[in-house]
Design a protein around this nucleic acid. Sequence first.
DNA 1: TTGTACGCGTTATCAT
DNA 2: ATGATAACGCGTACAA
Lengths: 337, 337
Amino acid sequence: MSEITIKFLAEKLNLASSTVSRALNDSHEISDKTKKRVLDLAKSLNFQPNANARSLREQKSKTIGVIVPDRVNNFFNLVIEGLESVCREEGYSLIVYNSYEDVEQEKKIIYSLLGGKVDAVVISLADEEKEVQHLEWLREKNIPILFFDRVARHVSGLKYTTNDLESAYLATKHLLDKGCKKVAFLGLSNTSSVGKARQDGFIKAHIEHGLVYDKNLLIGFGHDDIENQKVLEKLFYKINRPDGVLAAAEKLGIATLRALHNLRIKIPEQVRIVSFTNMQFADLLSPALSTIAQPAFELGSTCAKELIRGLKSKNINLFEEKKIELPSKFTIRDSSK
Amino acid sequence: MSEITIKFLAEKLNLASSTVSRALNDSHEISDKTKKRVLDLAKSLNFQPNANARSLREQKSKTIGVIVPDRVNNFFNLVIEGLESVCREEGYSLIVYNSYEDVEQEKKIIYSLLGGKVDAVVISLADEEKEVQHLEWLREKNIPILFFDRVARHVSGLKYTTNDLESAYLATKHLLDKGCKKVAFLGLSNTSSVGKARQDGFIKAHIEHGLVYDKNLLIGFGHDDIENQKVLEKLFYKINRPDGVLAAAEKLGIATLRALHNLRIKIPEQVRIVSFTNMQFADLLSPALSTIAQPAFELGSTCAKELIRGLKSKNINLFEEKKIELPSKFTIRDSSK
DNA sequence: TTGTACGCGTTATCAT
DNA sequence: ATGATAACGCGTACAA
């Protein structure tokens, strides 16, 4: 680590360390002449104040902890990008953690964050029903929590989501309008407000169409991609297979596409597909995939703005229960025409 | 921030704070009985030692700084995933920064890291020729730097790369073997050892085939996606257009695909394509895209292992010049058949 | 086995 | 306008 400290600069300049500190922080108490001397020397030595000492002293780290269930996912990546774009402007760093869709992992991460490592936590939950106890830990330590996408049902706070019910409703309606008689809903089987909302939208469209949906077509998937692939191939191998699919997760949409390719089933003639995804290349898939894209970047940047505002104002009320819902974008392409 | 400190625990238990500290760190000097008392209380209060105080005292933050030129890119994401998988095991956190392919940005980031915020920096450079001065700053402060993919030419250190020359050679040879007469090389125009190596491989294949490559077909692209798209459409609109493409970056491969779609040019009949990319869905594109996939996750995990080993051993020699090259995987699909 | 005292580098308070 | 000093919370050298 560096040997150059405020004390060191002070000695070189025959000043007290407090004077140097003030000069570096552009205090009005310090003469311009002294400021210049200090700044010049600091610059020439590439001095950078010790972040840990400062954080200890200030009781804040200027760092935000971000916890996502799946780091490789496009959606979460874009959210992080949105968070970062704002945080960077404000001098905040991001430490991103991956919970791997596992509540136990999530607990460990949060526990490790209880010691002043971060000033706030932005999280999309691994599972929304299982446990919320570890979220209370943060509250006890006065570390603000902000939720996005998979938000906590029974914990209050700022919650950023997208219009999942409506999007799923529109997509399902579209599939039914196109003449699909047997539409399957593919969701991740963890208990999630997001999955629930999308399923509700799916059901709502059926009801409006005067149709009864088949409960066997509400299918929950785990996180083992190979296993999921098998389940899908079995589903579509059946004579009485679905003729439409609403995939509530990118990986499921992709797996469906792959399954249908393997089985030489034609899209959209035999099966129509719409998938939630933030993939950039949906238009280049075979066939071009109809998608519901969440406003991921915007979700992140909006969240970060409010977060920083709250951290600056020290007005804890700013982190009280509030729900912000941003609209997703439904794009119809060849896979459901 | 939390009010529960070692001192607080010590008072509750009628012990000296040093005793509590030692107990928490499982020192052999402390009796099992005392340890249990301390640990029980700490656990029940969700005590977590203050990270900043510890970092200040220990002169290390157990945090690694990672700088990539493009965070949304699949390749870099997978590398980060690989880094994280190892770091997490070892109790290290990652702070990831995006240089946005901009050396000035990169300099700022590195400058901000000079104050003990991170114990080491893992970086893929924005541009390898422009400046290396900011890398020297890190060296001056004794912060180890490890390079991957876009490594520094004139700065020594640990360097993790992939066999770019060979991969590009194989892919180009494949295209020429398939009968392509006019293959274009699409690269990013920043000066990069990676781009250079791939171009060298491209040229090598031509020479071996007894062909002279057209220098006008070594095309450099910037970072404006829309502009790139235009350039490509212009390129393929020409009568004398290329009949083969080696894209040295994912975004260029995708842009090419899109350009050819727009122009209704048939792949592979009229133009064959191979692209460097770590995309997961290359087999589902229209047509399935031939790819060279770098061992991204492995690159990250290998790098992290060596890094942690070095940080633990305090043997600075471990960070001396060494080049590690991992093989990429070339997969032929419909786009070049 | 446990306690006392100090320093890591910074900033804020209180002098001068 | 500048200096001396204390404190943030932790771990360790030294003392008991």
